[in-house]
Design a binder for these strands. Structure first.
Lengths: 169, 169, 169, 169
DNA sequence: AATGAATGAGGATTCATTCAT
DNA sequence: CATGAATGAATCCTCATTCAT
């Protein structure tokens, strides 16, 4: 999407863009920052304070619901931006990683809590399991987008949940 | 990557490009076709004729090995192209889907065989499970690329394998 | 240098600029006016009331001293602005010419006085000699700036002084 | 002068410019290179192989003649480009310096030869005197351009020649 | 088949200037 | 007086594509 297209949508003059953003990359940065803020805000439909198995299920199933809410499946914005980054864009990469870390931490925290409460397989490594969950989100959304079909995502979530439940004590 | 950049790498003149490809999209198409052919060829390091649990494990672990072989983690080319497609590029989308289907079929075939042999959970739907596997691979590669670190992929594959083994009869 | 850059340095808002100057050209005009005023003020390190050969030498050597005082050789602001003028900027050109004339007059006045006092070659045309002096200063500064080295200016001034002395009666 | 203006004059498409020049700076480089080649070519109206006092006079008077040949006085292209250079454009600065050095060498060579032949003041430093001559060219052209009048240049040349003659043995 | 010059639409960015507050 | 948001023309540059040789 070109700056011209963006400005046509926004209805503002071309100079405004560069009044607010130093360069196009600044828009990307703002998108990430905004995404980050939104995720941490009260408006975020995803509850990152996962306190129960129900919460976890809701968390993971959220992506199915969101996908269905769009006219067409979309991939994760952070995943799309992140995979498109050049090697020299370490500032943006760091920001993306922070966003991913926020979501990962939510999962880790829950898994640790569950282990502590004796409700969860004591051997499992919480961080590794969080990676597994995040891969589900990224990959499920990617496949749904490519196939223009929510089902690959649904199938993925279903099995992930089944696996996680199998780890319950 | 622009056509000029591609030609600089290839060492050929610009006219050649448009002699062989009607347009740049033709190159993408050739890339997909080539990927497809390679996957079905004897040279492909991935054995798509999965006949044992060992084969399955090798299949899934291949992506870790390949990632380690690159100077930097890369996402799946089909995933990258597929998520970047416009709505009007249905020809390419279909080709991408065919490639994904080929790999998916390999998984489905094995799961069906295992069920038939009584070595696998009879209730599980082979296709859904194949979607799960593909999503996890796509997502693991995406995360590895963004984080410039194989570990998210390793952690993902590890749990996928653990889950699949849990489904063995 | 853009208006934005200038305002960043000045610390004031953009509206101020256009409150004081009708357009950017107005700034250039103010720069010239300011330069003019400064040259005629008591603060000006160049003594334009040249009354002796010593004064003349000091006048010409001033440019060497000033050049050494900067981090890097600079050309004459009036020369730089003047050569960058468009044909339609006759207002600014006139102002530049006035500034150059002021300095030229100082030289002419001294040469005339010296001739009158019988201390100087009677045949020499004071105005032409003043042109010579101004050209050499402009050129010396230009060379010093391009070469990032005062020496071309020093060498030039040295010979100018030697020549002027040769004209003494 | 913008790239668009240049292309409008040349009658070629916009892309051609960037086919031949990596960036606009490349044009400047080509201008300098071309100037350099021309100065060293047989077509150059300035005889750089100065072998006599007549040659020297012709050399210095050339700039008057050239200025009169234009519809309006012009400054030296090398001087204009050189004074407009940024600190980071050392490549171009070096080229400009090479061009200036070529002309300077011609003067130095003649002065040295004249000294050797006993036709010239033995004390004078040839290089310093060459700087003096180059300042004349740069400064004389600058003043002529600003004043839109060839006379400041003529006056300057006249005095420079007078001075040089005074140095003859 | 092969080369690379030529084209021109479009994309990113700058900048003088205006205007609402 | 003062601020900085808004505007849009102009500028530099990229890129897919065509064409002459």
């Amino acid at each position: 999407m070109s700056v011209d297209e963006i400005l046509e949508e926004s209805g503002t003059g071309k100079g405004q863009f560069y009044h607010y953003f130093k360069a196009k990359e600044g828009l990307i940065e703002a998108v990430i920052d905004n995404f980050d803020s939104f995720m941490k805000s009260a408006d975020c439909p995803i509850k990152h304070d996962i306190q129960s198995w129900k919460d976890l299920e809701t968390f993971l199933k959220y992506f199915i619901q969101a996908t269905k809410g769009f006219d067409q499946p979309r991939a994760c914005p952070m995943g799309m931006i992140g995979t498109g980054l050049d090697d020299d864009q370490s500032g943006l990469r760091d920001k993306i990683n922070d966003v991913l870390d926020y979501s990962k931490s939510a999962l880790i925290k829950f898994f640790n809590q569950a282990k502590k409460n004796g409700e969860f397989n004591q051997v499992v490594n919480s961080e590794m399991l969080a990676d597994f969950c995040q891969s589900m989100i990224q990959g499920g959304l990617v496949l749904a987008k490519i196939r223009k079909d929510v089902r690959p995502l649904e199938n993925t979530v279903k099995h992930v949940l089944k696996y996680l439940k199998s780890l319950r004590a």
